[in-house]
Design a protein around this nucleic acid. Sequence first.
DNA 1: ATCTTCACATAAGTATACCTTAACTGAAGT
DNA 2: ACTTCAGTTAAGGTATACTTATGTGAAGAT
Lengths: 315, 315
Amino acid sequence: MTDRLPPLTALRAFDAAARHMSFAKAAEELNVTPAALSFQIKSLEEHLGQPLFRRLNRAVELTEAGKTLAPGAAEGFETLTAAWRATRRLQDNTTLTVTAGPGLTAKWLAPRLYEFARAHPEIDLRFSATLRIMDFVRDEVDVAIRFGYGPDPGLYVLPVPPEWVTPVMSPELAERYTTPESLMKAPLIFDESIDFLDPPVDWPAWFRTQGIDFTPTHGSHFSQADHAIDAAVAGAGVALGRRGMAITDLHAGRLVAPFKTAIETKAHFRFLCAPGTETRPQIAAFRDWFIAEIDKTAYVSDEFEIIPVEDIPPP
Amino acid sequence: MTDRLPPLTALRAFDAAARHMSFAKAAEELNVTPAALSFQIKSLEEHLGQPLFRRLNRAVELTEAGKTLAPGAAEGFETLTAAWRATRRLQDNTTLTVTAGPGLTAKWLAPRLYEFARAHPEIDLRFSATLRIMDFVRDEVDVAIRFGYGPDPGLYVLPVPPEWVTPVMSPELAERYTTPESLMKAPLIFDESIDFLDPPVDWPAWFRTQGIDFTPTHGSHFSQADHAIDAAVAGAGVALGRRGMAITDLHAGRLVAPFKTAIETKAHFRFLCAPGTETRPQIAAFRDWFIAEIDKTAYVSDEFEIIPVEDIPPP
DNA sequence: ATCTTCACATAAGTATACCTTAACTGAAGT
DNA sequence: ACTTCAGTTAAGGTATACTTATGTGAAGAT
């Protein structure tokens, strides 16, 4: 017989039946009568040349053929559904789904979102704070904001100024630790979320910018950047704060950055979306707002001597 | 409108049109007239609420919506087609597709296949010699023979006796190197295809079974086991031959294994197929033949003192 | 400049695939 | 023995999908 695809409605009926393991429930899902579904399955079995379900009297179970077909059918229809939904979303100019890492969401986006929501009441903003790299089509996400290196093939990438780090601490601690040397005795906070950077942007690197050869051996470690900043705000120690993470607490006076040397890394935040979607109204609005917010705090960089990490002398 | 799937025939028409970038060719592929296809696309665009193609006079091009939908549609239908074909193959009891690594194919399967083909003339045997792990459904493979550890969740695994290695060389070389100590001065051949084993099954391990602490520093390296064996047959040096790889050349007298100590590893060949398919006639026939062939050479193991690799004293 | 060709659109008519209602079957639970 | 449940079967209607035939507009040829 044909090695091509069988009637697709029949295949979809099978998919629903296999997922529910019930013809009746499958019929309900597809808004047809059980009779119709029974026919579809029967016709599919005729196309195939062998049964897909074993009819027990109160239930159905999959035959070997059914077990072979079911996972692929489910995956195939899932893919189609995701693609169709993503396409439909293109003309929905009222919803905007953004994903960002938990740190950026907590320390940068969340405090500013109220402004965006007020400026664009027509946009229904949804957030997904996860580190998982997402698929724009499959996960129904419009914009991703991610910290790291490029390149990102096949994506629209908006350049954002590079990120730098400098020691930050609570005002109380700043009275105790007034010189770079004194930090060697201070409780240090380690932000493991930037461990992946190469060359490393860490405490030894910062001490070297001060002409100090010192590798701290203990301190508090945090896997997420916002937790490290929170610890610093609470007075638990001195953190190497990333500009984007610390800026809100610096402005609020909860943190101070007494030393005016910062390390710049090639990694930076990147505004990512599927190519072509950057012109959709809500994405363009979000992008413009995002750039404006970053520009608002750009002057902070002028206060610091910013040293590219690759210019730091090796140990 | 509905967020559910649109009419599937229309989606399939779009998929074909997007792949060919031509309505006429898509119509040909689907065995319908161009007019029918034109209607399908139009109906899909109405479902969506926006055009999927931009009609230029001599050609068509995808709109943003089309570009969003096309990859997912293609992938979805590919998945469905693969699943359907895999299901149809279940009732094809005349074809058998086997995949194995290049080493096993060259040194073990190929020399024996003639026998199998003669014993089962009704089976149309196809081979795929690749190291790539294959998906039984997507790659249309019935049986995989792989060297390594388990477990393999969700697969039928036929246990095969464990694999061991012992020094092998050409008869000429064997006259020169008659003691384990003499091998320290022999040209050694390294088979990198078993480097992934842990604990390692390598020359230092074998020397330790002889009470010799020796780590060879140079020799010939081969990334594939069959090439290492071929080099040994050619008299280029002494290889640590895997039972399964060397057995044919040992029987033929092209190789000899003068030292009767072998190292056994927990890794072994595994006969893998999708669960449930082990009862299909051609797979059962191949499995039975495979076991019988292995049993034929089982007595060889009796000649050796086989030491499990974990029992070898550490350096 | 006009003609031809090409690729797709449109109109009208037709077939068939799909669905519904209604009655049936056979086993499990009451 | 009666009810219920899950799926099957039959008959008939409707919407879907296809066909043939004709129309349209621009690219390329003469």
